[in-house]
């Protein structure tokens, strides 16, 4: 079951890389957040009340609060799709596949002292993290870059699941809070960029520099 969830998580990464509509990317990232946050149910051996609480809070923030917030930002700035990505969609999907291969390769090389039996956790984490960074690099619209940031956080969360026992959840909570505040700030920034330039293309920010 955990393998299925991880496979779907990585599949969501590929879909995000291949999709041009901002709204569908938001849905995809919400679903990915859902998958990532229910994963501890299937990985942890013993499920205590604190684990359940932690999962519920993560679920609430990752797959409801942040996507709903992004959705309202989307509604406000009336931009529906990414027109000119720096790297095209088909190319992005292929690069995503290459990232998966490389991360499986890395996963075989690294020999972590892993207390979980799941060998796919590490490659999935690396893939999600790297693709998040890739999404930030390869897209121009600021909202997609925020989504790339979210995806990166999902990858960090997956890697954290390997390295931490669940008494380290407090760190995850800290990251999650940072993320939530970051996304909200980014929403305000987006709104201001949109008000100034009538677009959320980050290349327009170049005109702010001194000549």
């Amino acid at each position: 079951m955990s393998n299925l969830i991880l496979t779907l998580t990585v599949l969501m990464v590929l879909f995000c890389l291949g999709s041009s509509r901002l709204l569908s990317i938001i849905y995809l990232i919400a679903f990915q957040g859902f998958l990532v946050s229910v994963l501890p149910f299937f990985i942890n051996d013993k499920i205590t009340i604190s684990v359940i609480l932690f999962i519920l809070v993560t679920l609430l923030i990752k797959s409801f609060l942040i996507p709903i917030f992004l959705y309202f930002v989307m509604k406000r700035i009336t931009i529906k799709r990414e027109i000119e990505p720096i790297i095209g969609y088909n190319g992005s999907v292929f690069l995503g596949l290459i990232i998966i291969i490389i991360s499986i390769f890395i996963g075989n090389k690294f020999n972590f002292h892993i207390n979980h039996h799941n060998t796919f956790l590490f490659p999935a984490g690396i893939t999600t993290l790297t693709s998040g960074i890739f999404l930030i690099i390869a897209r121009k619209k600021a909202i997609t870059q925020v989504i790339g940031y979210l995806m990166m956080e999902n990858g960090i969360y997956l890697l954290g699941l390997i390295l931490s026992n669940h008494n380290l959840n407090i760190i995850e909570f800290g990251i999650l809070l940072d993320l939530l505040v970051g996304v909200m700030l980014m929403g305000i920034v987006l709104h201001n960029i949109n008000k100034t330039f009538d677009d959320i293309d980050t290349t327009l920010l170049k005109s702010l520099r001194d000549l």
């Binding site: 292929f94 796919f120 490659p123």
Partner: peptide
């Protein structure tokens, strides 16, 4: 249509990678 087919190819490749790895 080519994009659709690229997605088909990527799905198959993805499945193959997973099968090969795990």
């Amino acid at each position: 249509v080519p994009k659709f087919l690229v997605i088909t190819f990527s799905l198959a490749t993805f499945a193959t990678i997973i099968i090969m790895g795990f």
